[in-house]
């Protein structure tokens, strides 16, 4: 079969794994965006910068404090999430009464500032981050790099846990209800402003977590976020703004599609996501998993 397609199975599966692990990052990042947009109605343009911060904090922990990747996996989301909390409390919370556009402008400005600070400090060339899980698992038809396998699995678990929390638990019921009618939920005795702060912090923490996971795969640079976030926004548009499950499935799915495109028609691999976005917008403007407004 592979001979018929003119592709070596090794190359095909290798690209599938690369595609899936890219998809893992798309999913984690678009999930954070979906959670934030669903609750706060804010399009968090700083998401890419917060992802980059995650990678940098992991690198700093390793370089300055000697803390290994596994410690960073726990510490970084907390640090980056706390940074998100600060932004929400000081800035974002003042914009909820206004049009979407103001939140977008604020977070876009923040992204530029954060990136600028890191560029000033570290330049644009990549900083290396050692792979914590070197080696690969020989499967015969392909070699599965341990770390990529771990990144895919870990991201999948985090995504599903987030989905479960939002769709199946009491806390999630508060979140879903507050998405629909924040005034009413607050009049039931729930501290909605605090819930908004924590939701933003959580979404940002997811971006930070994606950053740590990315550090050993991509090189750590101040621009790593802005190059990725454009694709992630396309993923969000394809999946449907605010849909939790949609963002997870679309993230992994588009990663795979990208990987396959690299095998069969490499020149299109960087644009395929945007082509799909155009088609989805034409046929189903609310996105694959979105509900029409």
């Amino acid at each position: 079969m592979f001979e018929l397609l003119g592709v070596a199975p090794q190359a095909l599966f290798a690209q599938l794994i690369v595609g899936l692990s890219n998809g893992a990052f798309y999913a984690l990042l678009s999930l954070g965006l979906a959670v934030i947009f669903g609750m706060l109605n804010v399009i968090n343009f700083a998401h890419g910068a917060q992802y980059m911060m995650g990678a940098f904090v992991a690198w700093m922990l390793l370089t300055y404090a000697g803390l290994p990747f596994w410690a960073a996996l726990v510490i970084v989301p907390i640090v980056v999430g706390a940074f998100g909390l600060l932004i929400e409390k000081l800035l974002l919370s003042r914009l909820y009464q206004l049009d979407h556009l103001y939140g977008l402008l604020l977070t876009f400005g923040l992204a530029l500032i954060i990136e600028g600070v890191f560029r000033h400090q570290y330049g644009v060339s990549g900083l290396p981050y050692a792979n914590p899980l070197p080696g690969y698992l020989p499967l015969g038809f392909m070699n599965l790099p341990y770390y990529r396998g771990f990144a895919i699995l870990f991201s999948l678990i985090v995504c599903l846990a987030t989905w479960y929390t939002i769709e199946k638990t009491k806390l999630g019921a508060y979140l879903r209800a507050a998405t629909e009618r924040p005034d009413l939920v607050q009049a039931m005795g729930i501290n909605v402003p605090r819930m908004l702060s924590l939701t933003y912090a959580f979404g940002v923490a997811l971006a930070g977590l994606a950053g740590v996971l990315a550090a050993p795969i991509y090189s750590v640079t101040p621009l790593m976020g802005s190059s990725l976030i454009i694709v992630v926004f396309a993923v969000v548009v394809i999946g449907g703004m605010g849909s939790i499950l949609g963002s997870i499935l679309t993230g992994f799915g588009l990663g795979l599609v990208e990987g396959l495109t690299k095998v069969f028609y490499p020149p299109a691999s960087n644009t395929v996501v945007f082509v799909i976005m155009v088609i989805v917008l034409l046929l189903r403007p609310q996105g694959l998993f979105g509900t029409p407004k």
């Binding site: 005034d183 607050q186 009049a187 005795g189 501290n191 909605v192």
Partner: peptide, 8 residues
């Protein structure tokens, strides 16, 4: 009072 404290 804030709305949630009124409810409480």
């Amino acid at each position: 009072l804030r709305s949630d404290l009124i409810a409480r």
